[in-house]
Design a protein around this nucleic acid. Structure first.
Length: 615
RNA sequence: GGGGCGGUAGCUCAAUUGGUUAGAGUACCGGACUGUCGAUCCGGUGGUUGCGGGUUCGAGUCCCGUCCGCCUCGCCA
């Protein structure tokens, strides 16, 4: 149908007869003289020109009807532009003098035009007419980047001896972890499949099967509320390796990250540092630290203990005798904001006090160091006796502000971890996209933590994560009710973090039945329950399981980083909204009673589905 | 489930303290124009102010409910 794409023609093509196909990007009708049409496809823009003096009337009649987003095919001759080049276009030095024009499909007046200039339509509108939104160059670039990630991924892991194996989408419901999407069985009344949260158990079984190295670009499903960087349906680069220690997996993945950033962005990934979970929490208050800026957290409990400030004293009284780092032990922590005395106004810091309530903190005590080095604000008088020690511990200079959190270790750490990021954003300390790539491995995370509501132990990663080699015996010996002991056991897990965002996580797995039983026991799964839910895995582990470990990278998030967007929907062709709706196809929707009967399901929902009359 | 922001013309937005016939840009329609390139100039069509109640002489504006979108806490092994 065409001889060239719209991004292809150059000066070297002058004089050639060409045929192009594409969409009308813009039309500039000069009435009695000239008509210019920019025709667009995925590859670029080419200017078509019609001259009213020498073009036949039949051709002009068609050209006159062209409007934005009409689909056309045009044939003509390439020539150098006589009106001067357009440096913004790759094809900007040439144009096509059209001799034949056909409208392949006239468009209705589109709800919006797919250009990247000016304000975008509301996201609702973009999702509703996704096919138009996806014509925008930015969206086409994102899909292209995503495509490159698929290609690099498959090449890299193929080169390294991985076998791509597909695993089931209709899967078995397992307890633990995220809420599942479920699918009723027609053949087995009252029975349900679940969509996989990840192919975790299958890939471990593939290791027992002797596959040695497995990878898959796979869709995963978690029926939890989405976020800006999270969809309930998402894609993982999933892999598993036999006969490896965590160094082997981490080295493999560093190589992968290096290849990805190199091939997609032309960026050389700097050396990947490692940081233990504990150090992450101590310095950054989060398990995925953003190390592109300072504002590190300091523990000032010992100094705070010598003040009469009620907020500090009350916090420090909590579990005062417990071991260090215990989640319920009271602590006072602080971050120093250089130059904050001027920049963090009373209004801003009051806002922080309000904001941290969402993390369970009561507020943010603030002290400012004025130009003369004196402490200001309400808590200053309490801190006067420890002024010198605090200044030394925090490295305070005139003009600084100190933000405190006084609470349990868990709350104070979380609060300052979040506040640190907010302050960095507010003060413009975060480098713009592409300026810094801070990769780090978070290692040695705890095996378990207590669920805040139920009080039960939950696996930090998943129940098949092995304790770190040297922790095995302590783990097997740990008493279920000994919180301090259980919390202190670290696993052989690892997360890869870039610029404060977790892009992948994995672990060395348990291959010993005794260790696996202990995990289930701590999670409150009786041997019978464990057998019922995971018999296939437990059985497989008994039939010659090699030591193995693996990791999964979030492909959507990788692409977000490589595209420089903070919206996961910008890297997914057909994403869903916050209530899991697809505004394009109007999924989910009702099904007929006969369909339900066939799968032995009766709905308890009596009203009309709300989405039906979407605005 | 909780908190926040938003919903006004096809699209992006405005509308004073609750007060005349809800405006502008753009798209679309018509006209003018020979080198534009986000063309320009002139004119025009276009509104259930998300939906349902309420208060009021009077509601885009205030109140209640509800739906939808986004951000977020919880949640996300």
């Amino acid at each position: 149908m065409r001889t060239h794409t719209c991004g292809q023609i150059r000066e070297s093509d002058v004089g050639k007869a060409v045929t192009l196909c594409g969409w009308v990007n813009s039309y500039r009708d000069h009435g009695t003289g000239l008509i210019f049409i920019d025709v667009r496809d995925r590859f670029g823009l080419t200017q078509l020109v019609f001259n009213r003096e020498d073009a036949p009337q039949s051709l002009l009649d068609v050209a006159d009807t062209l409007r934005n987003e009409d689909v056309l095919t045009a044939s003509g001759t390439v020539r150098v532009r006589t009106g001067g080049p357009n440096p913004k276009l790759g094809t900007g030095k040439v144009e096509v003098v059209v001799s034949d024009l056909r409208v392949l499909n006239k468009t209705e007046n589109p709800p919006f035009l797919p250009d990247d200039m000016g304000a975008l339509p509301a996201e609702e509108t973009r999702l509703r007419h996704r096919y138009i939104d996806l014509r925008r160059p930015t969206m086409q670039r994102a899909l292209l980047t995503r495509h490159k990630v698929y290609q690099v991924t498959r090449r890299y892991f193929d080169e390294n001896g991985f076998l791509e194996v597909e695993t089931p989408i209709l899967y078995k419901s397992t307890p633990e972890g995220a809420r599942e999407f479920i699918v009723p069985s027609r053949h087995i009344p009252g029975s349900w499949y679940a969509l996989p949260q990840s192919p975790q158990l299958f890939k471990q079984i593939l290791m027992v099967s002797g596959i040695d190295r497995y990878m898959q670009v796979c869709r995963c499903f978690r029926d939890e509320d989405p976020r800006a960087d999270r969809q309930s349906e998402f894609t993982q680069i999933d892999l598993e390796m036999s006969f490896v220690r965590r160094e082997d997996v981490m080295a493999m993945m560093e190589g992968f990250a290096r290849r990805l950033w190199g091939e997609v962005l032309g960026v050389t990934v700097p050396p990947v540092q490692r940081m233990t979970y504990r150090e992450c929490m101590e310095r950054y208050g989060i398990d995925r630290p953003d190390t592109r800026y300072g504002l590190e957290i300091r523990d000032v409990s010992a100094i705070a203990a010598r003040t009469e400030f009620r907020v500090f004293r009350d916090a420090l009284a909590k579990n005062a005798g417990a071991r260090e780092f215990f989640s319920k032990k009271g602590v006072v922590k602080a971050i120093r904001v250089p130059g904050g005395a001027d920049r963090l106004t009373r209004k801003i810091t009051d806002g922080y006090s309000e904001w941290v309530r969402t993390f369970g903190a009561g507020g943010v005590p603030v002290v400012k160091v004025n130009a003369q080095g004196a402490f200001e604000t309400g808590v200053a008088k309490f801190l006067e006796p420890v002024k010198a020690d605090l200044a030394a511990a925090m490295g305070l200079e005139p003009g600084d502000t100190v933000l405190f959190a006084a609470d349990t270790y868990a709350v104070a750490t979380k609060t300052l971890g979040e506040l640190r990021q907010k302050v960095a954003r507010d003060l413009g300390l975060v480098p713009e996209w592409g300026k810094a790539w801070n990769f780090l491995w978070m290692i040695d995370p705890p095996m378990f933590e207590r669920n805040k509501d139920t009080g039960k132990w939950v696996a930090m990663h998943h129940p098949f994560t092995s304790p770190r080699e040297d922790q095995r015996d302590a783990f097997v010996a740990a008493g279920e009710d000994d919180d301090e002991a259980v919390e202190s056991i670290v696993s052989a897990g690892y997360d890869l973090v870039v610029n404060g965002s977790e892009i992948g996580g994995g672990s060395i797995r348990i291959h010993e039945p005794a260790v696996q039983s202990k995990v289930f026991q701590l999670l409150g799964l009786s041997p019978q329950m464990a057998e019922e839910k995971f018999s296939f895995l437990l059985e497989a582990l008994r039939f010659g399981a090699p030591p193995h470990g693996g990791i999964a990278f979030g492909l959507d998030r990788l692409v977000m980083h490589l595209c420089g967007t903070e919206n996961i929907r910008d890297v997914i062709a057909f994403p869903k909204t916050q209530i899991g709706a697809d505004l394009l196809t109007r999924a989910p929707g009702p099904v007929g009673d006969d369909q339900l009967r066939e799968v032995h399901v009766k709905s308890t929902w009596q009203s009309e589905p709300p989405l039906k009359g979407v605005s």
